[in-house]
Write a protein that binds this DNA or RNA. Structure first.
Lengths: 192, 192
DNA sequence: GCAAAAGTTTACCGATCAGTACACATTCTC
DNA sequence: GAGAATGTGTACTGATCGGTAAACTTTTGC
């Protein structure tokens, strides 16, 4: 097991950054919480920034793998998969440690558009947009770019609302909205 | 001019927090950028946290006042006002200093739901939800709570997407989505 | 079994963090 | 014009920030 400690470090650091935020997490806290010595950390990553980027890359991989798998399991056709996205989101929102989207938070803490961390966050959203757009195209939408973007907007809005609102059910309402959009965009398609 | 410096402090601190973030903004930077001495700051606010809460209260007042005014100017009926929200958002997104929603960022940096800063952010979203729900009710929606929440989800999603996506136009796509939702929710209503 | 790679502990660096103490200046109220 | 707010600059606290140095221990490959 050669690249062991490095991966373990990134995996554990990811949890801490997600739970506590980026600026609020110091390297000393990471030493305490990951069990990896500071010297080792700086042997693998030259700066805290590089460690954050690595954590975001892992998060992107983990999240999209999980998300796509749940969608495939919950929806059988492209159109139904677009809808099923929101069922997957509902499952996520109910998890104990749910704290919103790590990439929205990364973009919020590192706002400079050229900053590597911001770039990494933007790339995650680009990949999701591509995924939804591909599904919309496969479903036969006349304007898959627009429908894909709208589904993404609903997803991001639901994620934010699930953090900051207590009096409504964003996953359900976003899903219903998506259903309405699908009915409008997919002429020959009715009823989920 | 009695309560002068305090308001000036909050007004300037608001700009810095919005531009640079909360954890990333130290009190010394605020001294340099607001021209208010540290001693004075701590005479008005016992902690940095209290200053942030005051800045968020001002931001809430400023933003909602501006937002509601633009909506009233751009839309004449309740339904058209709901649509016009996204025209107002489009104007905001195009501003030079646009850096997303300050309350989403506040909620992202202070994730504990009981934290005063998080509470303040949630309150802002609650007020917006109430506003949209009232408009949906006035427009004659059968389920104004749901429609209001969906409009809010579209708004939050557009705000986030306007920060992290470069290849699409979230304000336009969200507006089109809102139009589709309105057509579905308002039986006797057609064409904006 | 041996050497190199990878990891560890401990102590440290200068800078910055939020927050305070104190002595002095300005301004408002009456 | 006196007293009370309200403001200021400067210097400071102890803690923490990101990052480094050096000496030591464990694991790994061959």
């Amino acid at each position: 097991m050669r690249p062991n400690k490095r991966d373990e470090l990134v995996r554990n650091a990811l949890q801490v950054f997600y739970r506590d935020g980026f600026h609020a997490t110091g390297m000393d806290k990471l030493v305490a919480e990951t069990g990896v010595s500071k010297t080792s950390m700086y042997k693998h990553f030259r700066t805290k920034e590089e460690l954050i980027v690595a954590a975001l890359q892992l998060r992107d991989e983990n999240f999209r793998t999980w998300f796509y798998q749940r969608i495939d399991a919950l929806g059988q056709t492209p159109a139904k998969k677009l809808l099923a996205s929101f069922d997957a989101l509902a499952e996520w929102f109910q998890e104990d440690g749910y704290r919103g989207c790590m990439f929205i938070k990364a973009g919020a803490e590192y706002q400079d558009k050229d900053h590597p961390i911001h770039v990494q966050a933007a790339e995650h959203k680009r990949l999701l947009l591509e995924y939804f757009t591909d599904l919309a195209r496969a479903a036969g939408a006349a304007d898959p770019e627009k429908l894909g973007c709208q589904i993404l907007i609903l997803k991001e809005g639901a994620i934010v609302s699930a953090v900051l609102l207590k009096s409504c059910d964003p996953a359900r309402d976003a899903k219903d909205a998506a259903l309405t959009l699908l009915k409008g965009a997919l002429p020959g398609w009715e009823k989920a």
